[in-house]
Each structure stands twice: as C-alpha cells, then as structure tokens.
Write a protein that binds this DNA or RNA. Structure first.
Length: 506
RNA sequence: GGCCCAUUCGUCUAUCGGUUAGGACAUCAGGUUUUCAUCCUGGAAAGAGGGGUUCGACUCCCCUAUGGGCUACCA
C-alpha cells in the first residue's frame, strides 16, 4: 500500500476562507490518521490574482489552528520536491506540455479572448471541443508552417487538451462512489498559456500531484466537475497507475437562505468567516477572524470537524488527537452544511470551561492591561473562577467582572427604583457598621453574620441583599454577593456602600 | 440552457430494510441561583412529493420538485 500523502493547495488570492480551513483540516486528519504526510503547495499560476501577504496569512492560519505542515511552504524542512510554489516551478511544466503536444493529445490555439467572446455570442452555449475546434484558429486547422510562423512572429497562443468526443469517463470518489461523465461535456481546456509561460490550474495541479506523489486528493465539491478532466490528464500523461484517489467534500453553505458561505454573510450576520483578521492590501477592506474574535483554535477545529463529518457516536468534544484517531472519509456526509455560528460559540464556551483558571486568568490579565487595570494574578484567578462559566469568550469576562476592579460610577435606574426604598439608606448604614466589625471577611463567615443580623432585625432578606448588590455592583447582576466582597475586601466594600448612600436619590 | 452532486427536527447530524426515528445547537416550560448569567430537568420539533422493489422502506431503484456546484487564457 502506498504511503499516504495529501496536500492542501490554496491560491494566494486573499484571506483563507473558513471552508478552505475545513478542507485543510480534513486533509490533515486523514494524513495523520494514516501516518502520512501533509503538504502545503501554493497554486499561484494566476499572477493577475496574486495578493501579497496571502501566503503568509495561510501559513499563519494553519499554524494557529494546530494543523502542522510536514512538507512544502511553511514546513520546518521544505522537502524533496521543492519548490512548492507553482510560480517557481515554471520550468517543470513545459516538458509535460510538449509531451502532450507530441502525443497529439493537445494542440496549439491562437484564438484571442475577443475572438472567443465573439464565438460565444455567435453560437449559443459555445464550447471549445471536438465539435467546434475545427472552426477555430489552431494547429489542427492551420498548416504547421503557419503555426511556426505565428509563434516565431510572437503571436500569443495557448495549449489546449484534445478531449475525445462521447467517451465515458469514470471518477471514483471516496465519498460519493463512482461518478460518470461523458467526455463531450468537457471542453478543450486551456493547459498552458504563452503569455506568461505558465500552465493553468488543471495541468499544474495534476503534474504536481504526480511529481509530489500525492496519494489522496481531498478537496471541495466545487472541483467535482473538473475531476474527469484530471482523470483524463492522468491517462494522457501515462500516469493512471499512480493516480491519486479523489474525495470531494460537501460545501459550507450560508446560515440563512441558500448558496455558498461568503465573506458577505459574515459581515451581514456578524460573525467571522476567516481564521484571522485580514486587511486587503489593495482595497484596505478589513475582515475579522476567529482568533481576534476570541476563539480558541481547539474550539474552531472541533466545530469545523463536525461540519460534514462525525464519528457516529454522541460525543461532541474532541481533541485534535481524538479527531485524528477517529477520522474516516467514509463518514463524511455528502450534502452541504449550513454554517451554524451559534454552535461555534457553544464550542468555545465548552473549551473555556475546560480550561484551567490560571490559564484563563493569564489571558484575561493581558486584556486587563489593555484597560489600564493592574491586578494581582491570584486575584484575577479567583475572579475567573467566579465568572468563567458565564462567558463564551475570555473577552466577555470583563463585562462579567468589571465591578471587581472598578467601583460603580452610576446605578442602574430601574433597579434603584425597584430596590432602593426610603428605609434602605439607614439599613445600609447598619450594614456598614456590621461589616466593619467583621475581621474574617471570607465569604462563608461574612454571609453567616449578615444573615444573622437580617434575621435578628427581621429585615426583608431580598430588600437588603438587592440594595447591597446595587451598591457594590451598580447593576442587578454578578455572582454571589459574599464572594464579591471577599475579593474586593472590607475597605472597598464599605467605601462603595457609603458612596451608594451618598449618591443614590440625591 | 447543459452537466454533475445532494435532499431526516429551524440548524449540524445518528440510522448503513424491521427503532416509541437518537443526540447536539437554537427555542419553549419548570427548577436552582432571593440578582443576572450559568447549570439541571422536561417539552415541542424531521424522513420533499409520486411511483416501484420487498413480508416490510427514511434506508434500494425510477420520475418529479427543490437546493447546491461547475460551465474563463480563475483557482
């Protein structure tokens, strides 16, 4: 059995889409499951669409997510098939173009884009193929002298594959089974263009997969229609024996309505569709990423892994290693999955709860620094333990705990109206007296003493506690009152109570 | 238009001919928390339609419908 070698082969045309991330993830899981290699190859044969920074973005994204590249761009050691950028492999492809030309399996065509457009207008559903190639300007209709003259003359040309009419082409897909195409629906695709001496995607992809000994091609479903062309290329080049196995993944769809998930959906519905923040170098347009939105990479990986695959059990939370152990292409679903952002948040919530308080505290502390809040790490850790379960993201912790660090500057009007009665100020004065006399401010002790006082005075428990909370927090929210005052301490507690008495209703 | 792929609760999905069609997210109702949130318990919620095949179809086949992808000198 052949060594498993898979590749992720994006084009550096912008930020890596979350669907692409999932494709990379599935490739990675499959490779690691079978002890194989994961390659990263950059498919930049279209210089017009090249975007600076996109490649670095892709590498950083995969690294953040914990998808390790064994070979190619971004790998620790580049590998035996370098270079792994197609633009740097220019010299390699020409040989195979010539081979196809010599074997009469491809031909040279001179039709300009304008002429092709004209043909499309002239003939409805025009396709450059066995039926129409005789009508066009190419090496099949021109004399060989004429062809040579034109090339010598500097005329631009392309090399097209010569697809035979009406033959069955079978694609074996690991997810979908056998898919049969009729060769007549495939056009004579351009394989190479003289303008930049570069192959197009199809040829470069097949040649590189062959040379890099790729065993499995795992890619998005949008490639299924061109799979028969690729099968044909393997056949024409004499490589059928080592042709990789194909697996076409279902697409990620819009959360609402229909269609492929796009950047616009993220903007419209308010969630990231990219792993990392990205600013388009040309337009300056910004897109938000999962990392900066506060997601843990493990949560994103877990979430994406289950969008189109599941192990058949009711387990929901998986480490990368568990995913590797469990992954199997025959458990990948066939139909597209609508992107359910709410579930993504839930995954992050789960991972936040799983993370230890000191880990969360150290992340939270950097957020606190950004807010000019300096706090001892043990105090931050204690606060994290009290509010962590309320949050989906570390960056939500501030909203849940700011009152630990800052006294309220205003008091929620509705709560004041509801909880601050005429007798409240004098009760709070009494509470101050009581708290002042307590030496052990640990939550349990303070709670017992305060409750005893309330009972002895026959005060209303809710009336006291809610006014107390309003004084300390400023709003009707937050964890257990006595946990809060234990953290902020006696002096601060009394200060806040006094401040509330002085401020509210004045 | 043509070709290809797909179709189970609102969403992600389990089921690989015989099940009260299961789980999760979201939602609703109770409970806990004298706050808010969390959490716990429970409820509602699905086989696109029509034909076959079969003792028996969500499951296999065909048709229809719907959705999606592709249809460039882009990937």
């Amino acid at each position: 059995m052949r060594k498993v070698r898979v590749r992720f082969a994006p084009s550096p045309t912008g930020a890596l889409h979350i669907g692409g991330v999932r494709t990379a993830l599935y490739n990675y899981l499959f490779a690691k499951k079978h002890g194989g290699d994961m390659l990263l190859r950059i498919e930049d044969t279209d210089s017009a669409r090249f975007v600076p920074g996109a490649e670095a973005y892709i590498v950083e994204s995969l690294s953040w997510l914990g998808i390790k590249i064994d070979e190619g761009v971004g790998a620790e050691s580049v590998g035996p098939h370098a270079p792994y950028r197609q633009s740097e492999r220019k010299a390699i492809y020409r040989k195979y173009v010539d081979q196809l030309l010599n074997d009469d399996l491809a031909y040279i065509a001179f039709d300009t884009p304008a002429e092709l457009d004209a043909k499309r207008l002239e003939i409805a559903n025009f396709q450059y193929d066995a039926k129409t190639r005789e009508l066009m300007t190419n090496s099949l209709t021109l004399s060989s002298d004429e062809v040579e003259n034109r090339i010598a003359n500097g005329d631009q040309y392309v090399v097209r594959i010569k697809v035979a009419a009406n033959e069955e082409i079978k694609v074996q897909d690991l997810i979908r089974g056998e898919v049969v195409f009729n060769s007549s629906v495939i056009d004579d695709k351009v394989l190479f263009k003289s303008s930049d001496e570069l192959p197009t995607y199809h040829l470069a992809n097949v040649v590189d997969d062959y040379l890099m000994q790729i065993s499995h091609v795992i890619r998005g479903e949008e490639w299924l229609p061109s799979a028969p062309l690729h099968v044909l290329l393997y056949k024409y080049l004499g490589w059928t024996e080592v042709m990789p196995q194909f697996a076409h993944l279902p697409l990620l769809l819009k959360p609402d309505g229909n269609g492929k998930l796009s950047k616009r959906d993220g903007d419209r519905l308010g969630f990231p569709v990219f792993p990392l923040d990205w600013t388009d170098p040309k337009s300056g347009e910004k897109s938000s990423g999962y990392r900066e939105a506060g997601y843990f990479p493990e949560a994103v990986v877990n979430f994406l892994s289950l969008l189109g695959w599941n192990p058949g059990t009711e387990q929901e939370i998986f480490s990368m290693q568990e995913l590797i152990d469990l992954f199997s292409l025959d458990r990948v679903s066939k139909s597209g999955a609508k992107f359910d952002y709410e579930k993504g948040k839930w995954f992050n919530h789960k991972y936040l709860q799983l993370m230890s308080n000191d880990e969360v505290a150290s992340i939270f502390q950097t957020i606190l620094f950004g807010k000019q809040v300096v706090a001892d790490i043990t105090k931050v850790e204690k606060i994290v333990s009290l509010v962590k379960e309320r949050a989906n993201f570390v960056n939500e912790l501030w909203g849940q705990s700011s009152f630990f660090f800052q006294a309220p500057t205003e008091y929620d009007a509705k709560t004041v109206q509801k909880r601050w009665k005429t007798e409240t100020p004098s009760q709070m004065e009494e509470l101050i007296q009581l708290l002042n006399s307590i030496d052990n401010f640990a939550a349990e002790n303070a709670e017992n003493l305060v409750k005893e006082w309330i009972a002895a005075k026959e005060y209303n428990m809710g009336g006291i506690m809610n006014a107390f909370r309003l004084s300390i927090v400023g709003e009707p929210k937050g964890p257990h009152m006595f946990d809060i005052i234990e953290v902020i301490g006696k002096v601060e507690t009394i200060t806040r109570l006094q401040n509330a008495i002085n401020t509210i209703n004045n």
